[in-house]
Design a protein around this nucleic acid. Structure first.
Lengths: 214, 214, 214, 214
DNA sequence: AATGAATGAGCTTTCATTCAT
DNA sequence: TATGAATGAAAGCTCATTCAT
């Protein structure tokens, strides 16, 4: 602000400084919004609440997001990316079965130790009626499944048909998603004991044992 | 009941006429609301939409329900009662393990053939932030668990500790709830194949086999 | 209701029985309404509240009163008649000055020991903006003033001009009405002491002493 | 204040610009509301009417007032402050008795020449049933009485006991409040003549003459 | 970049009133 | 005479969004 200050030349550094700040401000909004959405849901949280939580005026939020739906979409995308990248990582490990079993506990633990199931529930509800959001969820899911399926079959060690694998992946996926719902249903959810069981189960499901008979 | 009785001449039929009509009108609202909630969510559905769907003026709905939340609560209660009675029935059968395995397919099929996962997702989301609704869900869940646990242990054929059972019930419960989320995530959900896998899994989980080793 | 009951012939007695009942039911509504109006005001009290208090269905009230305003009007009329007849009585006594002074305490006491100033306040507020109600109040007031003025001047003992009397009646009237407002303003209103002062004042005002000098 | 200061360049004028405008807009609402309340009463005036009168959207009024009650409260407070400060001023004058008598006419004239008794009546009615509003009225009244009482007794010229003074203040207070009710009751209220009588009366009441005998 | 004043549509809810029974 | 189901208009209030500064 003073006259004798040397203005730094415009360079890549300068620009990224601005961009960094922009990105940070944007993230500020997302973090604030996530908190509000957890507490009051996508529709229950008002722009006023979000702006207060973000330490930013209501109007200024519209410099970063076109409208409230865009914030919701960004939050959902953030969350979906986070979880799907986690699963994709598992899919990329050399021995996918071992990796899945090994990482199962960690994944479950992360689910159980997260910020609670509120946001996931909110996302599922939104996806169930909003086709756009549903598409985001479905695309992410498809990617994960593709990776896992391919890896398993390229490894040549799959002791079951592709159709069987598909069904088993559904079952495991259901278990992961369902654990969050159980957190809502049971306030005394026994984390540790469940982790043990989940590991046991995944091993069984992927081992290909076929003792089933109708 | 005697012939010379003077007082209320209302036979069961007569009295029921009004009461029946009242109950029917009330149910009309619930059905309409359920439809609206599925389409637009609890907060997205307006009283105007519900009243239109119920073929009733907005104001008149308030003769049957104190406010919109009361409708939401009634819908949730209806749904929770429905599912919890279904599971309680399984818990009451003599050979609970056989019953659970036998009925698993049927239950899953009913889940998958239902009116879609929208309402469940909506309920989970609401329960995740609304303590009153959460309590309803948790109480129902506790009842079901109590019944199943007691039955299994009274039968004296439980090949695992109570703690283990608890964890396994969580896992199975997660699977049931999770299947609805899978319906959202995967538009090509392979119903039949999954039913086979689910039956296999429940049998395994309840059989008490303990091949797991960390 | 029984067949062998002898129906009394239609006579004046029979008719008045019906009429009595009708009047009683009507009064039931008025009493209930007065209670509600005291508690919630004319606009704050709902027909539902009144009907509940009157032990009568909402719809049936409309057999006795054309609409809610008619109830309000009836209540106001009842109250105004009550007070104006009280004052008119004073006006009809032979020695009006003595009577006014003598009865002052009684009147004030009745005001102070009544069911509280709520209804009066409500009536003044309504009269202040509703011309119809205002007219009721003004007509009653005029009657009372006419009686008092005539009596005093016919007695030939008035130690002041008609204009002076008019003003003094205003002052006394203001005091009476104002006492009710004081009951609202001062929760520790000193009844007995005020009664003494009021008597003293009325005597002074009507005595015609004219010590005033501007 | 120093020249090389960097921080808030906002001078008093600049800051005031916004704040002034805010205060002005707020007052705009109050003025509009007062008008509406006079015409239709606190409950009869709708937010839509007020917003129209204020030249402001309905929603925007809620930036200045939490709800309609807050507007009512602010109006009442304004009015109460206005009158109580007027009376407190009288209480602060050196010769309170002379001041009260001297200012009586002015005060009465102001009452009689005001915007009519509607608002006062409305306030009394509201206070009679709304405890919060009643408290405001009562607190203001207590303050005024405290000031007047103290002043009179500190002057050492009180020709009556404290209890007597209290009662006489009630009587004078009743007269002031009652005059507004008389304006409602009598469309031909004789202002000038009444002012003369009121002056005479106050002088008598405060003079301590005790010609009264029961 | 940042504010917050301002809007208008839409929400839930209430309520006086009517009418079939 | 008596009920209460039913309506429709209007109320208070909220909120996403825009815009001048």
């Amino acid at each position: 602000m003073t006259e004798n200050q040397v203005l730094p030349k415009l360079g890549p550094g300068q620009k990224s400084l601005r961009e960094d700040r922009t990105a940070a401000r944007r993230q500020q909004v997302l973090d604030a919004a996530q908190g509000c959405f957890r507490q009051h849901g996508f529709h229950g949280a008002s722009m006023a609440q979000i702006s207060a939580a973000a330490g930013m005026s209501v109007g200024h939020i519209y410099h970063y997001f076109e409208n409230k739906d865009a914030i919701v979409a960004a939050i959902i995308d953030e969350d979906v990316q986070h979880f799907s990248s986690e699963f994709a990582e598992i899919g990329r490990s050399p021995d996918i079965m071992a990796a899945m079993i090994d990482h199962a506990g960690a994944v479950v633990r992360r689910i159980l130790d997260g910020k609670g199931p509120t946001l996931s529930a909110e996302i599922f509800a939104e996806a169930a009626r909003n086709p756009t959001v549903r598409r985001v969820l479905q695309d992410a899911d498809k990617k994960v499944h593709d990776i896992v399926r391919e890896t398993i079959f390229k490894s040549g060690r799959a002791p079951f048909t592709e159709e069987q694998l598909e069904a088993r992946m559904e079952v495991i996926g259901a278990m992961f998603d369902g654990l969050e719902m159980r957190l809502i249903r049971n306030p005394d959810f026994p984390r540790e004991a469940v982790i043990v069981e989940v590991r046991r189960l995944i091993r069984y499901v992927l081992s290909g044992e076929d003792t089933a008979a109708d």
